[in-house]
């Protein structure tokens, strides 16, 4: 019996929802790790120690010059081969997206820290704050506001990039969609729903980011 598109969609909903949840979970973990790591990464770049600058620069360039997809393959296929480390495809996905997200949020954080007037550092130091205290009480609270809008943009990019993890076998939303299409041959409806899913997830974030940015200027 031929199913109508809508019936098909309803019938495959449980499978799609499973995929949605996978996508959301990968994005969620990656965003949390990217944010924490990225703020630290950005702070390390602004401390002004040569060896730290070289180290962070090297890390940054690794992710700038090598595509995420290659990183995913490297971690998923390469680690077991070269180091005998076996990670689930889900873990690999979160790991790679987080390592990449750290560089992106790190750049945002670096810019925010550097945009704070030089005198704030002088004033903080002159009352005897340690470097950690200086960041904790003076620089970070001021940088945070400036970080929020560009960070949200990075978050939408992380969400969209989760779709690459199909290729290391994560059954996220795109993969779930493909499985349904293979079974039923109904491509338009399923891809259409993926389209709507990503849009509904990322568009509000994009709007929010723009609103916050406007409110700050």
């Amino acid at each position: 019996m031929e199913l109508s598109g809508l019936e098909l969609l309803l019938q495959s909903m449980p499978q799609l929802v499973k995929g949605f949840i996978q996508t959301l979970l990968i994005a969620f973990y990656s965003i949390i790790l990217s944010t924490i790591g990225g703020i630290l990464f950005g702070a390390l770049q602004t401390i002004g120690l040569l060896w730290l600058n070289l180290l962070t620069r090297f890390y940054l360039e690794l992710f700038r010059s090598i595509p995420i997809l290659v990183w995913l393959f490297f971690v998923y296929f390469g680690l077991p081969l070269f180091f005998n480390v076996h990670l689930s495809s889900f873990t690999c996905a979160v790991l790679v997206l987080s390592l990449w997200g750290i560089t992106e949020i790190g750049e945002v954080a670096r810019g925010a820290f550097q945009s704070i007037a030089r005198g704030q550092r002088d004033a903080g130091r002159s009352i005897g704050l340690s470097t950690i205290q200086l960041y904790q009480y003076i620089l970070f609270p001021q940088a945070l506001r400036r970080m929020i809008p560009p960070s949200i943009n990075v978050y939408t990019r992380i969400i969209k990039t989760t779709s690459l993890t199909v290729l290391i076998g994560v059954t996220e939303v795109v993969k779930a969609g493909q499985q349904i299409i293979e079974r039923t041959g109904e491509a338009v409806m399923i891809y259409g729903s993926l389209f709507v899913f990503y849009f509904l997830l990322c568009y509000p974030l994009s709007v929010l980011s723009r609103k916050l940015e406007k409110r700050m200027t």
Binding site: Q120, A123, I138, Q142
Partner: peptide
């Protein structure tokens, strides 16, 4: 300092 540099937050 010349420009006070109070912590604005």
């Amino acid at each position: 300092f010349q420009s006070y540099h109070l912590f604005p937050h």
